[in-house]
Amino acid sequence: MLFVQIVLLIDIYNSVYLVKSRSDLKILVIIPAYNEQVSISMVVKSVNQSLPEADIIVINDGSKDSTLSVAAGSGAKVISLPYNLGIGAAVQTGFMIAHNGKYDVAVQVDGDGQHDPQEIGVLLDHLLNSDSDVVIGSRYLINLGYVTPIARLLGIRILAKYISILCKKRLTDTTSGFRASNRRAIQVCASSYPSDYPEPESLVTFNKIGINTSEVPVSMNQRYGGKSSITPFWSAYYMIKVILAVTILSLRRAPNLEDKTNDF
C-alpha cells in the first residue's frame, strides 16, 4: 500500500516538475531573414550554441543577397519564400511549421542579430513558470543598456502606452520581435498572424482571443548588419500608421481560427 502510494507520489512529482523542464520540450527557433547575409550565420550559430536541443529554421523572405546560401551553410534548416512577403508572413510560415511539427514552444529571433540568443533561456523559463502563452523580450522594462534614438524612443513610448490602454495591461516594448510562444499561441499564430505591423498588431489580436502575454527584460544588441526596417526619420510616420492599424484592428472581430495548415 505504502509502496503504491510512493509510486503514485513519484508520478505526480514527475508530471508536475519534470515534464516542465526544458529538455523535454520540442523547441523551434524561427529566424525570419530578409537580406541578412552579414548577420544570419552568426545568429544561427549563437542560437545553436545557447540552445543546442532546439531545431532552427531560417525563413528566407525572398532575399536579394546571398542570405539563402549563407543560412544553409550555417547548418540551419532554411525555408525560402518565392518572393518577399514581409516579416509578418515570414514569421507566420515559421509558426505553420511549428504547428505542423507539433512543437511545444516556438521562439522568434530576428535575423539581424539584435536579439541575444543567450537570452532565449530567460524567455523559456518565464514561459514555463507562468501562465503566459507568449513571453516577450522587452528592451524597456528595465534599463539593460539598450540605446534608442530619441525620436524613435518617443514613438515607441507613445505606441506602448496606446496599446497598453487597448489591451488593458502594461506593455513596454510593443515592437519587439523577440518572443517565445507555447502551443496554444502557436496554433493561433499559424492560422492568423497580421502582416503589416505584426508585432504590435499581434498583441491586440492576442488580447482579443484571450492569449496571455507577459514581458521579461532583455538587453538586445545594436544591429549587427543590414539596415533596420525603421529609420529614425520614419519613426513618427511609422508610429501614426501603426496606431491607425491597431485602432482598426481593435474594432474588428476576433479572427476566425480555421486551420490552414492541415494539408501538410
Partner: peptide, 14 residues
C-alpha cells in the same frame, strides 16, 4: 497568394 507562397516555401524544402 501569400498563403500559396508560404506553402510553396514549406513544400519546396520538404
Amino acid at each position: 497568394s501569400r498563403t500559396a507562397a508560404q506553402h510553396i516555401g514549406i513544400l519546396t524544402e520538404r
